[in-house]
Amino acid sequence: MRWLFGVLIAIAALAVSGSAALAANPPRLVSMNVCTDQLVLRLADPEQILGLSRFSRDGWQSHAGDISRYPVLSGGAEDVLLIRPDLVVASAFDKRSTRELLKAKGLRLAELAVPRTLDEARQQIREAGDIIGHPDRAAVEIARLDAALARARRAVAERHYRVLPLSRRGWVAGSDSFVGSLLSEIGLRSAAGDLGFNFGGFASLEAIVNLRPDFIVVSQAGDYAGDDGQAFLLHPALERFYPPEKRIVIPERMTECGGVMLADALDALTAELKRVGR
């Protein structure tokens, strides 16, 4: 048994020394999509970031301030191969052929799963912090998420609201979707199940009006629609039954990826609940 104990001690020592080396020399990295952009901008040092995704300047990263200092990648393998980063941060949604080519050329890829629950979001933040070389920052983000979750639960307590998460063209996020999981975690009941939707589906205006939830949860406020999909939410029938005081607004950029933006999403939700509950 002594030899086994010695082996375990040696493995632990190697793990500690490896973590210390990573913290002292954090990897130079690139990000392949808007969701990994959010993670690296929050967790990495600016000098670590050699490039962000081609959609990084489309308004998804407004929390990060001026990101013009970072090069924008094309989405293909060529510019990544020219940069030769120590680490490529990607997800399962990135083009598989691109990921396989980068690996074949000897680049190290961190392929992060897409979170579907708050627990998976915490795990993703923790994993990203480890591979980027800043687990302490990941711990801070997880604590920030947990604190925001507690605030949202307090705002919902004893209200028993029934809500319908609704987006462009009448898409309803189902009870088993990430948004559905988020609503359930804080104590809101999603009306999507009353429509028979588990993961999600499209609902007609008539079905939405007849459902009569207490609130609809949408991704934008105001009376401007950039396209026909957004125009659905401004249909006169919806505006009649769901005016601004019946709409809870959580910007899509805060919920689409999960991860480090979820604390902001929960705080936005808390603020909206206070507004509509007056």
Rank of each mutant, 00 (worst) to 15 (best):
residue 24 A to H: 12
residue 255 T to A: 03
residue 133 G to V: 08
residue 90 A to N: 06
residue 185 E to C: 05
residue 76 G to W: 00
residue 62 S to E: 11
residue 78 E to W: 04
residue 181 S to G: 15
residue 202 F to M: 12
residue 118 L to T: 10
residue 265 A to W: 07
residue 233 L to A: 08
residue 69 R to C: 01
residue 190 S to A: 04
residue 16 V to I: 11
residue 178 F to D: 11
residue 9 I to C: 14
residue 194 D to N: 10
residue 21 A to K: 13
residue 118 L to G: 06
residue 255 T to M: 14
residue 80 V to M: 07
residue 35 C to Q: 05
residue 184 S to T: 12
residue 92 A to G: 08
residue 86 D to S: 13
residue 204 S to D: 12
residue 141 E to F: 03
residue 83 I to P: 05
residue 166 L to R: 10
residue 234 L to K: 04
residue 6 G to W: 07
residue 57 R to N: 15
residue 39 L to P: 03
residue 113 A to M: 07
residue 53 S to R: 10
residue 13 A to V: 14
residue 89 V to A: 09
residue 276 V to P: 11
residue 201 G to D: 10
residue 175 S to R: 13
residue 16 V to P: 08
residue 192 A to D: 11
residue 270 T to Q: 00
residue 272 E to R: 04
residue 152 A to T: 11
residue 202 F to E: 15
residue 84 R to Y: 02
residue 237 A to V: 05
residue 132 I to P: 09
residue 216 I to P: 04
residue 11 I to E: 11
residue 228 D to A: 14
residue 96 R to P: 00
residue 246 K to N: 05
residue 192 A to T: 07
residue 129 G to V: 04
residue 131 I to S: 01
residue 8 L to P: 01
residue 240 R to A: 12
residue 200 G to R: 07
residue 204 S to F: 08
residue 278 R to P: 15
residue 275 R to Y: 14
residue 165 P to K: 06
residue 161 Y to G: 01
residue 73 L to V: 07
residue 154 R to G: 00
residue 52 L to R: 10
residue 19 S to C: 06
residue 21 A to C: 09
residue 275 R to Q: 14
residue 194 D to R: 06
residue 13 A to T: 14
residue 113 A to L: 09
residue 255 T to I: 15
residue 74 S to M: 06
residue 84 R to T: 08
residue 26 P to C: 03
residue 191 A to Q: 08
residue 137 R to E: 04
residue 113 A to Q: 11
residue 113 A to P: 00
residue 48 Q to W: 08
residue 131 I to P: 01
residue 116 R to N: 14
residue 10 A to K: 06
residue 154 R to P: 00
residue 112 L to W: 02
residue 165 P to E: 11
residue 38 Q to F: 13
residue 199 F to Q: 13
residue 186 I to N: 01
residue 222 G to N: 08
residue 48 Q to D: 10
residue 70 Y to D: 04
residue 235 H to G: 05
residue 142 I to S: 06
residue 87 L to D: 11
residue 213 P to Y: 05
residue 267 D to H: 00
residue 151 R to L: 05
residue 125 I to R: 10
residue 122 R to Q: 09
residue 135 P to V: 08
residue 141 E to R: 11
residue 135 P to T: 07
residue 237 A to M: 12
residue 5 F to R: 11
residue 186 I to V: 15
residue 175 S to K: 11
residue 272 E to T: 01
residue 36 T to N: 12
residue 94 D to P: 02
residue 97 S to P: 01
residue 274 K to Q: 14
residue 13 A to W: 14
residue 52 L to I: 10
residue 216 I to R: 10
residue 28 R to E: 09
residue 237 A to E: 13
residue 51 G to W: 02
residue 77 A to R: 01
residue 177 S to I: 10
residue 165 P to S: 06
residue 26 P to Q: 04
residue 181 S to F: 05
residue 24 A to Y: 11
residue 210 N to C: 00
residue 185 E to Y: 03
residue 79 D to K: 02
residue 18 G to D: 13
residue 82 L to K: 12
residue 235 H to K: 02
residue 205 L to N: 05
residue 131 I to R: 13
residue 163 V to K: 10
residue 18 G to Q: 13
residue 33 N to D: 15
residue 263 A to E: 09
residue 229 G to R: 03
residue 246 K to W: 02
residue 141 E to W: 03
residue 181 S to P: 02
residue 266 L to R: 07
residue 76 G to F: 02
residue 239 E to M: 13
residue 266 L to P: 03
residue 256 E to G: 00
residue 269 L to R: 09
residue 108 R to W: 02
residue 251 P to Q: 06
